[in-house]
Structure formats: C-alpha cells, structure tokens
Simulated scan of single mutants.
Amino acid sequence: MGIVITAFERSPDGGKGLARDTRVRWALEEAGLPYEVRPVSFRAMKEPAHLALHPFGQIPTYEEGDLALFETGAIVFHIAQHHAGLLPDDAGARARAITWIFAALNTVEPVILELVTARILERDKPWTAERLPLVEDRIRDRLTQLAARLGDADWLDGSFSAGDLMMVSVLLRLRPSGLLDEFPSLAAYVARGETRPAYRRAFAAQWAVNAAPPVGG
C-alpha cells in the first residue's frame, strides 16, 4: 500500500493553500514521493472511520501500510526523517532544522491563529475592537524576532529544510492581514518558498480539488 493522505473535500479557504494538507503535500513533493489523496467531507470527519485515524476529527491524516499518523508536524517530521530532501545529513544542522519545525508550530503559529480567531470567529464580540491591536502587536513582536534571525539569508539555517517548509506555511496565514508586508525580508522569504517547484505542485493539486465543480453539481 502506498501513501494515502486525507484532505478537505472542499477547503474552507477555497484552495488558497492555507489548509494543513498543503503542508503534507509539499513535504511529499519535496521528497519526490507518490501519494494518493482521499477527500473527506466535514460530516465524514466526525464519523467513526475518520476518528479512528484522527481522534480530533480533523485533517490531514497519513497512512502508509500499517502506519497511520495525524498532526501535520508529526507527519512532515516523519516524511523528513525517512526520505531525503528535507533534513540535512549533518547531525547538528539536522537538529536545528527540527528545532525550526517546532518553533513554527509552537512559537509562531499560535499567535497567528489568535488573529484568525479574533477576525473571523469573534468578529461580532464586543471585545474584538480592543483585542485585535493587542494580538497584532504580539505577532509583530514574533516577526521582529524571526526577521532578526533570518537576516539577509535565503533560509533559516543554510539550505532549505523541513523547518523552512513549516515556517513558510505558517507565515502564509498572515498574508490576508497585511502584517507580513511590514517585514519585507519575511515576505521575500515566503515568496521564495512559494516559488519552489514542489510547493507549486502541492498548491496546484490542492487548488484543483477546490476549483472543480462539486460532485453532482
């Protein structure tokens, strides 16, 4: 059995590459691995068959033989560990690349998701007008730190790695807010990630699913 991942039958972002399955697709494309995608509806995500793969009823999941994984970071880490192209051979550089995977998910993404929550899920709440500037300032603090670390380098630690893949994917969530444009070096960093052929293939695959007419439509 080859690699099978799950993805939204219809992505909430309309196929703009923000759904987390794009990160897994990108990693698989960087590693040159063939894979199949099983689309899952929002209803099916909460049914027993999918909950057996992902106990929280989300996507993506990853299946390869008897192995079943959930959580994007764990899936990308697994792919990077077992296939060339996403982690350096040098032990120290490899450890640093893994550190950047965790930094993207644990240090940078949470505050960005706060902004998504405030702007979309809490936009009608009375406290939103006061909360938004605070959240935006916390994001700016993180981006200032990240930009200082990146400097004028192309990637976070030498060559492109799974750490960059995850960080670029996280930062892409900021584009609609305009905050990323306040940090030209980080905007250019994200753009470099988007120009990689593997990312383009992953994005095109995700876009094609959402651009197609609904089944029966």
Rank of each mutant, 00 (worst) to 15 (best):
M1K: 14
G2V: 12
I5L: 15
A7F: 04
R10Y: 08
G14V: 11
K16Y: 08
R25T: 08
R25W: 05
L28Y: 07
E29I: 09
E30R: 06
G32W: 11
G32Y: 13
Y35L: 10
V37N: 02
R38P: 05
P39H: 05
P39S: 09
S41E: 06
A44D: 15
A44M: 07
E47L: 14
P48L: 03
A49F: 06
H50C: 05
L53Q: 14
H54Y: 06
H54P: 01
F56V: 11
G57P: 02
Q58L: 13
Y62H: 01
E64R: 15
A68S: 15
F70C: 12
E71C: 08
A74W: 12
I75Q: 03
I75G: 02
I75K: 01
F77K: 03
H78D: 03
I79C: 00
A80Q: 00
H83E: 10
A84P: 08
L87Y: 00
P88W: 11
D89K: 14
D90A: 15
A91F: 06
G92I: 12
A93W: 02
R94P: 07
R94H: 15
A95Y: 08
A97N: 11
W100C: 02
A103D: 06
N106R: 11
T107E: 11
V108G: 03
P110K: 09
E114L: 10
V116K: 13
V116H: 11
T117H: 06
K125W: 04
P126I: 05
W127C: 02
W127Y: 15
T128D: 02
L132E: 11
L132Y: 01
L134I: 12
V135Y: 02
E136T: 09
R138P: 05
R138V: 10
D141E: 14
L143Y: 13
Q145F: 07
A148Y: 04
A148F: 06
A148T: 14
G151F: 08
G151S: 07
G151W: 07
W155P: 04
G158A: 10
F160A: 06
G163D: 01
G163L: 00
L165R: 00
M166N: 08
M166E: 07
V168T: 08
G178D: 05
P184N: 06
S185F: 03
S185A: 15
L186V: 04
L186H: 11
A188N: 12
A191T: 15
R192P: 03
G193H: 02
G193N: 05
E194P: 00
E194L: 12
F203S: 01
F203C: 00
A204F: 09
A208W: 00
V209T: 14
A212G: 10
G216W: 13
G216I: 10
G216R: 14
G217C: 07
